[in-house]
Nucleic acid binder design. Structure first.
Length: 463
DNA sequence: GGCCATGATTGTAA
DNA sequence: TTACAATCATGGCC
């Protein structure tokens, strides 16, 4: 114990060289010479260290004396600066986090559904969009429509009320903590940065609560939509353009027709497909308890909320794979047509700046907004797996010529794009193995993957 | 109304 | 968790 005062004393002497304290002492409030200053600091520290040895009354009196001491502000300044430079700066560096993508998805969805953001006429826009998605715009839907609108409006109202409550509570609590810290700063060194940090911690905590609210709201909206839409009953065929886009993707990735989530999202966007199907959807976070089971017969499984990935696209690919596999012969003509079309597109793209040689295939992650369905990357180059995790750069060089060759081959065999006579010759059901499943490595056909070398790698996303 | 195409659902297996 | 397979249910054509 008697070692401490000595140490503290020496530290105190060291701190006299600190700019903050030095400044304070230079402005005339401290002693007139260096010895006097050292004596002052040592005095203060000595008093601090001995304070615990004294009785409570004595300590209170000492504390008061110390609080009133003319050197106290300078000492606190120094201690605050030391704190900032050590603990706070380390924590600050550790706690800088990027914006939560999940929160962004939730926000996007709430905006899209008309729950968050500016009022969209009580959700009528969302209701109209939902109705349009199912084609249910007739008069018989008007009652349902207004019901949906009313329910959505209710959800919106509850959401905003709760959000306001959270914000109010957050503000109140923040103010309370700030006052407390300011109060405490009279008796212990608390820097403004420390208060700032505490406020940000509080805000983070409250935003995680807000996220739960947003999550619950999303689930409520999805359930409402599912009841409103009852997707099976109101099934609508995709329009021709959407089907073509999906077919084009399917046949150009025939060796492994399993689009990644990103690719599905892109396809859904391109096809104008909205997320209107909610029976088998993933929960955003495992912490949230499942909502009460909906009453429709289509929702027997626990409702799980999926964001941004269209299950309609998944359904389409699921159906397509199975029906294609079951009846390859029937689809050969279609396959030839799309193969030829893709070849034409790829060739024209190649001729216009070799864009088709880009390693970014349609299913590349993060290619939002630049999804080019004309890009037959997988078809000709086999450069990237469906998960976008590999790129066989070595094959790119021979690509343009082989695409031209492919085109010639296709055209010569079909005598046009839709002549089915040569279909059985030109098109082989590549990718399907003897077990009836899509195989890992493609079976190179003369049409679909003429340039594939032994180094080509296809990932197996079919588990 | 029958038939086929096709989107959606569900149970199961891996 | 996802794909598959079977099945259901609706849309659209005749």
């Amino acid at each position: 114990m008697d070692e401490q005062p000595r140490l503290m004393h020496s530290h105190g002497v060291g701190m006299a060289g600190h700019p903050g304290l030095a400044q304070h002492m230079q402005d005339g409030t401290a002693g007139t010479d260096g010895e006097g200053r050292k004596q002052d600091i040592g005095d203060i520290l000595q008093q601090i260290m001995t304070i615990t040895d004294q009785s409570l009354d004595e300590a209170q009196a000492r504390k008061h004396a110390l609080n009133c001491h003319r050197m106290k502000p300078a000492l606190f300044n120094v201690l605050c600066e030391i704190k900032e430079k050590t603990v706070l700066s380390i924590r600050g560096a550790q706690e800088e986090e990027p914006p939560d993508p999940q929160l962004m998805r939730l926000d996007n969805m709430l905006l899209a559904e008309g729950v968050a953001g500016p009022e969209k006429g009580g959700g009528s826009a969302a209701a109209a969009a939902a109705a349009a998605a199912t084609g249910g715009v007739g008069a018989d839907n008007s009652a349902e429509h207004s019901d949906y609108r009313a329910k959505l409006s209710q959800i919106r109202q509850i959401y905003h009320t709760e959000l306001e409550k959270y914000e109010q509570a957050c503000n109140e609590f923040t103010t309370h903590v700030m006052n407390l810290l300011r109060e405490q700063s009279r008796t212990r060194p608390i820097s403004p940065k420390e208060i700032e940090r505490m406020v940000s911690i509080i805000h983070r905590k409250f935003s995680s609560i807000q996220m739960q609210l947003k999550q619950s709201t999303c689930e409520a909206v999805m359930i409402l939509r599912s009841r409103f839409l009852d997707a099976r009953r109101k099934r609508r065929n995709f329009n021709k353009q959407a089907t073509e886009i999906l077919n084009e993707y399917f046949y150009s990735h025939l060796s492994n027709p399993y689009p990644s989530e990103e690719a599905k999202e892109e396809l859904a966007k391109k096809c104008g497909i909205t997320v209107s199907q909610v029976t088998r959807i993933r929960r955003i976070s495992p912490e949230t308890p499942p909502p009460p089971p909906p009453h429709t017969h289509t929702l027997k499984q626990p409702v799980r909320v999926l964001l941004l990935v269209s299950w309609q696209v998944s359904n389409w690919f699921g159906n397509k794979r199975i029906r294609y596999k079951k009846n390859i012969g029937k689809f050969q003509e279609e396959a030839n047509m799309y193969a030829a079309r893709t070849a034409v597109n790829a060739t024209s793209v190649s001729a216009h700046g070799s864009q088709a040689n880009s390693p970014s295939t349609p299913n590349s992650a993060g290619s939002a907004g630049s999804f080019n369905m004309s890009n037959s990357g997988d078809l000709f180059m086999s450069v990237q797996s469906l998960n976008g995790d590999s790129y066989q750069g070595g094959q790119v060089g021979a690509n343009i010529q082989s695409q031209v060759d492919t085109l010639r081959h296709v055209i010569s065999q079909t005598g046009g794009y839709s002549d089915s006579l040569a279909a059985s010759q030109m098109y082989s059901p590549q990718g399907i193995n003897t077990n009836g499943g899509w195989q890992d490595a493609p079976t190179p056909s003369s049409v679909t993957s003429p340039t594939e070398g032994p180094g080509s790698v296809h990932s197996d996303t079919s588990n």
